Computed example of a mutant assay.
Amino acid sequence: MPEVVTLGETLAVLVATSPGPLRYSTHFELRTGGAESTFAVGIVRLGHSAGWISRLGDDEFGKLILAMMRGEGVDVSQVKLDSEAPTGVFFKERREGGESRNYYYRQNSAASKMKPEDIDPQYIYGAKYLHLTGITPALSPSCLATVERAMDIAKECGVLISFDPNLRLKLWKKERAIPVLLNLIRKADILFPGIEEAQILLGENEPEKIVERFLELGPGIVALKLGSKGALVANAHQEVYVPAFSVERVVDPFGAGDAFAAGLITGLLEGLSLEEAGRIANAMGALALGVTGNIEALPYRNELIAFMKGNSTIINR
C-alpha cells in the first residue's frame, strides 16, 4: 500500500503557446493539471510511494492522464474510468510577465461525480498520510461527502490527514466556502494555508495570529505559506520562520503550493524537524516556479539536494 494517499480531480490543460487574450490564441500545448495528483508525483519523485483516488472520463484525455500518472510511479489502482461523464478541461491564457488566467470547463465532469462509495477503506488504512484539498469539496455535494468520508476513514485508523484549503473562488462563493473549509480544517492534522486565503478564512492579517487561530481549530501542525518571505511552520510547542529560497525569475507558479506540501510531508515521513521539513517544502516550491507546467516542474531527489546545497539554480533547470 502507498505511504501517502490523495484524492481529487485532474484535468486536461490546454495552454496557449503565445501571450494574449484567449480569443486570439490559435495554438495550444496539451498538459495535465490537478493539485492532488501533482502532490502525489512530488512525493514519488522524492523517493516515497503515493496513491491517487479519482474518476476520469473514459475518453482520450482521461486515458492520457491515467497513463501519465502511472508512468510517474503513482498508484492509480483506485482511479475509475466513467463512460458517461467527460474528463474535465481547462484553458490557460498566457500574459506577459508570467501571469496567466484559467478558464475551467469541469461542471458535470467525471471527477465531480465522485461519491463516498468510490473509496475502498482498506486503501486508506494502509497509508501513513491522507492528503486532501479544498478544491474537491467545491466540485459538488457528492465530492464534499467523499472528502468527509475519506477523513472519517483516516480518523478511524490513525492515518494523519494533511489538508490544503486551496480556496478557489471561481468554483464556489466565499459565503459557502468558508464554513465548509473551516469544518474540514478542524479534522486535519497538518494544514497548508496560503497567507491570502488564511486572511479570508479567519479575517486575520498577522502570520503569528493566523497560525495560532488555526492550531486552536485542531490541526497539530500548520505550515503557513508566505510567498517570497518563506513559511511559518508551527505546532503547539514551537513556531519557526523558514526563509524562502531565492527565485531569480518566476516562469510559472502553477503547482508551487502542491510541491511545497509534498516537500513538507516528505520531511515528516523521514522524521525531520519542523524547520528541516520546512526547508524542503520551500525548496520544492521554489523549484516549481522555474519550469512551465505542474508535474513538469517537480524535482527529483538529486536535483532537490543540489539546489538546497546551492549547487544549482532555478534558472538553469
Rank of each mutant, 00 (worst) to 15 (best):
A154Y: 03
D118I: 10
E29N: 14
A67W: 02
T26A: 13
M308I: 08
G267V: 04
Q199H: 03
V291E: 12
S246K: 15
R249E: 15
S37F: 05
P137R: 01
H48Y: 04
T133K: 05
E303V: 01
E117G: 12
P116Q: 11
A127Q: 05
T266D: 11
I210Q: 14
R23F: 12
I185W: 00
V44E: 04
Q238Y: 08
E208S: 13
R279S: 12
T10N: 04
G293W: 01
A40C: 09
R279Q: 13
I195N: 02
L304W: 00
A286R: 10
D152R: 15
L181H: 13
Y123M: 02
S312I: 00
I200V: 15
E206R: 14
N183P: 04
E9G: 01
T32C: 02
G134Q: 12
A111N: 12
H237A: 11
S77G: 14
V74Y: 07
Y125N: 13
E84S: 15
L272H: 08
E60C: 09
L201T: 02
N294H: 05
E175K: 12
L184H: 07
R70T: 15
T26S: 14
S109Y: 06
P219Q: 08
I314S: 10
F254T: 15
G97N: 07
G255V: 01
I195K: 10
P219M: 07
K209S: 12
L272C: 07
F254P: 00
I315D: 11
S18Q: 15
D58E: 13
L139H: 00
G310F: 00
P2D: 02
E9S: 02
L132D: 08
A35V: 04
H48G: 03
V291G: 04
G42Q: 05
L11H: 00
V251D: 02
L202T: 15
G220V: 04
F163S: 11
D59F: 00
P86W: 02
I295S: 00
Y300S: 14
R279C: 08
G290A: 14
V240A: 07
L224F: 01
G263D: 01
N302F: 03
R186P: 08
I43N: 05
Q238G: 13
E204W: 00
H48L: 04
L160M: 14
T146M: 05
R31D: 11
L289F: 05
I185T: 11
D58V: 04
I119E: 07
Q107R: 15
R149S: 03
